[in-house]
């Protein structure tokens, strides 16, 4: 078989959790909240999804449990930053540290148990087209749903009234508040959405990619998702494009093996992290790019003065 096809297919699978996590964070940041806890929420989602699927045998239940766990953790973040107005950077870090600890604690007895992976969807006719069928119509359902999510997020932000409100709150919460929009409610909903997406992203790792639970299995993907939001200049389409590029970088190991390049695996594993740094430099080099695109009130607490 053509070696390019499995490479592209594995790139798509590698990119999918990044898409979920980064699209979720895009909405959160568009509302003016910086949640650095994605990594923690992903791990909690991974362990919750894995445990739920192991117990019930249903992947659907697994993904729902993962989303629920992500939301639960994001509510803790929301309460601290939105109600108690704690520092968002510090609280996000706390969320990540807590998520790493809690997931390792909860998943202590689950480590090493394998699960059958999510089967690909087989569409009669389409999936059997040579090459095209393998490239486009042989993924698991979550890959297709990630594209649905992209379309929904894009529509929400650009076309919907609620999306306009959310963006306004991210730019200038005091103005939005003055015209009667509830900053607190909108931001809570955005943070919860981000939590659900991060949870699903985590469950994708433990239910589809690996599929098993390994302590700390997200290995920085939550942080890469944060970088992707900056890379995508807070625009969903670019965020998704970035996720596929990064998916390709993480699969470079396959490319290298395919072409017989004698590079130690450690160096290949460094690539996504190094690429993140390079990409951030390219995007941030021109201060105008950030200034024009970053939500103006990102990371700043808001309290309605009477």
């Amino acid at each position: 078989m053509n070696p390019i096809v499995p490479m592209i297919a594995s790139t798509v699978v590698a990119a999918t959790p990044l898409i979920y996590a980064a699209l979720g964070e895009t909405i959160v940041e568009k509302a003016g909240v910086l949640n650095l806890g994605i990594e923690g929420m992903m791990l909690i989602g991974a362990v919750a999804g894995f445990a739920a699927t192991l117990a019930t045998g249903s992947d659907t239940v697994g993904f729902m449990a993962a989303a629920g766990a992500g939301v639960a953790l994001s509510l803790a973040f929301g309460f601290l930053t939105l109600n108690l107005q704690t520092n968002q950077v510090a609280t996000g870090l706390a969320l990540t540290l807590f998520g790493i600890g809690l997931s390792a604690f909860v998943g202590h007895n689950l480590a090493g148990t394998p699960l059958p992976p999510l089967p690909p969807i087989f569409i009669p006719g389409l999936s059997s087209i040579p090459i095209v069928g393998d490239l486009l119509f042989r993924y698991d359902i979550m890959v297709y749903l990630s594209l649905v999510l992209f379309a929904a997020v894009e529509w929400f932000l650009i076309k919907s009234h609620a999306g306009l409100t959310l963006r306004a709150i991210g730019e200038s919460p005091s103005v939005a508040h003055a015209i009667g929009k509830s900053v607190l409610t909108t931001r809570y909903l955005a943070v919860m959405f981000g939590g659900a997406c991060a949870g699903i992203a985590g469950a994708y790792l433990s239910l589809v990619q690996t599929p098993m639970w390994v302590e700390g299995m997200s290995a920085g993907k939550g942080w890469i998702a944060l970088a992707l939001v900056v890379f995508g200049t807070w625009k969903p389409a670019r965020v998704v494009l970035g996720a596929y590029l990064f998916g390709g970088v993480t699969q470079f190991q396959l490319f290298a093996q395919g072409f017989g390049l004698p590079i130690p695996t450690e160096f290949l594993s460094m690539l996504p992290y190094a690429a993140t740094v390079v990409v951030l430099v390219i995007i941030c080099r021109d201060p105008k790019t950030i200034l024009l695109n970053q939500p103006a009130s990102l990371g700043i607490s808001f309290h309605a003065a009477a």
Binding site: L36, V89, A219, G220, W223, L226, A227, V230, P264, E266, F267, S269, M270, Y273, A274, T276, V277, L280, V281, C284, R285, P287, I290
Partner: peptide
């Protein structure tokens, strides 16, 4: 990177954690 390119230090310092750990792993394996 922060002073020259305005690059967020949170993400860069964190990415460098993974790179340093992989470098150590390579050295003790190789």
């Amino acid at each position: 990177l922060r002073t020259r390119f305005n690059t967020n230090e949170i993400l860069v310092t964190l990415m460098l954690v993974y790179i340093a750990q992989l470098a150590l792993s390579w050295l003790v394996h190789g």
